[in-house]
Amino acid sequence: MIDNLFIPKGYRPLLDLKQTEHAITVIKDAFQSGLSSELRLRRVTAPLFVLKGTGINDDLNGTERPVTFPVKDLGDKEAEIVHSLAKWKRMVLTDYDIEPGFGIYTDMNAIRPDEVLDNTHSIYVDQWDWERSINKADRNIRFLKKIVKSIYEVLKRTEFILYEKYPQLTPLLPSKIHFIHSEELLQQYPNLSPKEREDAICKKYGAVFLTGIGGNLSNGEPHDGRAPDYDDWSTMAEDGYQGLNGDILLWNPVLEKAFEISSMGIRVDAEALLRQLDIKGCLYRKDFLFHRRLLNGDFPLSIGGGIGQSRLCMYFLRKAHIGEIQASIWSDEMRQICNEHNIPLV
């Protein structure tokens, strides 16, 4: 048995292959339409790759290797498959002259070869990346929570639309999403690991927005890693650091654990960028194209995030493995074990 593969006891898909493909379309159409309307976002076309060394690619935790390749007609300059579009979207807000209160969204497709393959992780990543211009007065936790609540309402509406078409998919989302800071979560569950703390709080509330991810907590460690140059996770408050970012986590009864569907946050301004680059020991990045433009005041203040498409479908359709939603690469052993336990990988 593969150590990182979870097999739900007695698992059987609630939808067959044809129903699953149709339901995926229903979810994606309903959710992106609702998200666009709720947050006032217009759709734009996104790149699959960017040039290496520009600082535009998302560095995630700073350790993941991007897929790179030489471009012959550019003198073999290296290009990188995007990890996400966290920084690129902010540049687009500038190029399109998007006013505060409005924004953009796009389909983001990526390859992350360093992912450990399991029920929820694939080397292929598909998500809705979105970004919205904001005013300086919006750079606070109250505004962040307002946007999270708006996204959560879209999730609930999408869940109901799907339920009307497939009554066997009984709605699970609670009426409200619970907010908690990662330091508060640590104090509640001091003897648990970060992932175990997420499991505990999500099982209790069903839907959670966990804030303050990236900066060190009172135990000297961050709850989880975050790149220093897009989310503002080190904003100062009267009682210390209070990050303006977080993850939307849902309790997944099939996998019996917390299930992340979105990472988002208010983006760094010039002050937060320099502070976080210093904390992470990478002030050299300030000379990259993206960082220079941000420090020069070229970009609007913004909020944004990514919402996993396959992840969202997996949750709503009660699937045990992301490979039931998307076509990717899996080991022969994983395919065999899944097949033996009624988990049909695409």
Rank of each mutant, 00 (worst) to 15 (best):
N4V: 05
L5P: 04
K9P: 04
L14H: 12
L15W: 15
K18Q: 15
K18E: 15
A23T: 15
A23V: 13
I24R: 15
V26K: 08
D29H: 12
F31H: 13
S33Y: 14
G34H: 14
S37V: 10
R42C: 08
P47W: 05
L48S: 06
G53Q: 11
L60G: 00
F69C: 02
D73M: 02
D76K: 09
A79E: 02
E80W: 09
S84P: 05
K89N: 05
K89G: 01
M91G: 14
D97H: 14
Y105C: 11
I111L: 15
P113R: 03
Y124I: 05
Y124F: 14
W128N: 06
E131T: 08
S133E: 01
N140G: 00
I141D: 15
K146M: 13
E153H: 10
R157Q: 14
R157C: 01
Y163W: 15
P167V: 08
T170C: 07
T170D: 07
L172P: 09
K176I: 04
S182R: 07
L185Y: 07
P190W: 09
N191L: 05
L192Y: 09
P194N: 10
E198C: 02
D199Q: 04
I201R: 08
Y205S: 00
Y205P: 04
T211V: 03
G215T: 09
N219M: 05
G220H: 06
R226S: 14
T235G: 08
D239S: 12
G240L: 03
D247K: 01
L249R: 03
W251N: 02
K257Y: 06
S262K: 01
D269G: 08
A270H: 00
E271C: 03
I279N: 10
G281P: 07
Y284L: 08
F288I: 00
L289Q: 09
L295A: 09
L301K: 04
I303N: 02
G308M: 08
Q309L: 11
Y315C: 04
Y315P: 04
L317F: 11
H321W: 04
G323L: 06
I325V: 13
W330K: 13
I337N: 00
